[in-house]
């Protein structure tokens, strides 16, 4: 199957007083219809900037996408003018955010906001748009959708708001859904419900999902494939199963070892990754992870390792493994 979303060589920088911040450097990936790709990394690794670059929502200035291609169903988004891009957002590629309270307008009913999204992209009557809003709320399993459509965001719980956001994002059946930490602000029981929902809708609608998260548990449960980012670069990529079973990059190895898990050893020390993430305006010369890496060799400090296949369908950017 041809991928719905193809990203290649995406590079985004920010011009700041402290110098050029390289938020995203040469990131490439593709996602097929009905597939979930997770982008994993810690704060400052560039995962959210990658998502915003795909939507072309980088504040500019100071941000700037300096290179790359983002193809959705064959159309390169980076080549479009702003008006055409606006038509793409919502209809072809949609995004949901971490905090649904700030992403919804507090002064409009939830139904109205979804209906507006529909009438923006499709030539339908107001009544049809409203009907679609109710249908979408039903689709995201909000009980009593007719009544909920007339409610304002503050009348809903956090989980319900995130569902409403998903309903709005999917109202025009976009081919690609970008979910930026969609469950981080939610309680665990609600998180489980929302993740189930995203998984089910993806199957029903055949949407390609790009899931951005820092939570390795969420990745393991929802993603078919994953990419790991560190300091703006992709450092590892492959099927989720393979990466968890046999991580190649010392960074992913360290991450997996540092997560406390159920049934872990009694009072055992967790493995730490020493040090901190380097600032993006002052990256080391070679591999950005080298200063924190226990297996680093001389070459790691001088040359950026290229991403190369290490096992079938599993690539990593590391000189050592």
């Amino acid at each position: 199957m041809a991928p719905v979303l193809e990203v290649s060589g995406l590079t985004t920088v920010f011009h700041t007083r402290g110098g050029i911040v390289r938020a995203v450097q040469d990131v490439s990936f593709s996602v097929e219809a009905g597939e979930t790709l997770a982008i994993v990394g810690e704060s400052g690794c560039g995962k959210t900037m990658t998502a915003l670059s795909l939507m072309r929502l980088i504040p500019s200035p100071p941000g700037q996408i300096t290179a790359g291609m983002v193809k959705v169903a064959g159309t390169d988004l980076l080549a479009l003018d702003e008006a055409s891009m606006r038509r793409m957002r919502g209809s072809q590629i949609a995004m949901i955010f971490q905090e649904p309270m700030t992403a919804l307008n507090p002064l409009l009913t939830v139904g109205r906001q979804i209906a507006e999204m529909v009438s923006l992209h499709e030539n339908v009557s107001r009544r049809a748009a409203n009907a679609r809003a109710v249908e979408m709320l039903h689709h995201v399993r909000i009980p009593a959708p007719e009544r909920r459509a007339r409610e304002y965001p503050h009348q809903m719980s956090g989980g319900m708001r995130q569902r409403a956001m998903i309903a709005m994002a999917l109202a025009c059946k976009p081919k690609v859904l970008i979910a930026d930490e969609p469950t981080t602000a939610l309680d665990v029981t609600i998180q489980a419900q929302v993740l189930d929902l995203i998984g089910d809708l993806r199957k029903e609608l055949g949407t390609a999902v790009v899931l951005i998260t820092h939570d390795l548990g969420v990745v393991a449960e929802t993603a078919d494939r994953m990419i790991v980012m560190y300091a703006g670069r992709k450092v590892e990529e492959g099927r989720t199963k393979d990466l968890f079973a046999d991580p190649c990059h010392p960074y992913l190895q360290g991450l997996l070892a540092s997560v406390p898990r159920f049934g872990g050893g009694e009072g055992e020390r967790l493995r730490e990754i020493p040090g901190i993430v380097p600032p993006l305006n002052d990256l080391p010369k070679g591999c950005a992870f080298a200063p924190r890496c226990q297996s680093a060799i001389g070459r790691c400090r001088d040359e950026v390792p290229p991403l190369e296949p290490k096992r079938p369908g599993h690539a990593a950017a590391c000189w050592v493994t």
């Binding site: 665990v188 029981t189 969420v218 449960e221 989720t240 968890f244 079973a245 997560v259 898990r261 159920f262």
Partner: peptide, 13 residues
């Protein structure tokens, strides 16, 4: 029980 079932486990197997 519900709380424990809801926690995502970092192990795809």
């Amino acid at each position: 029980q519900a709380l424990m079932a809801a926690v995502p486990v970092p192990d795809p197997s």
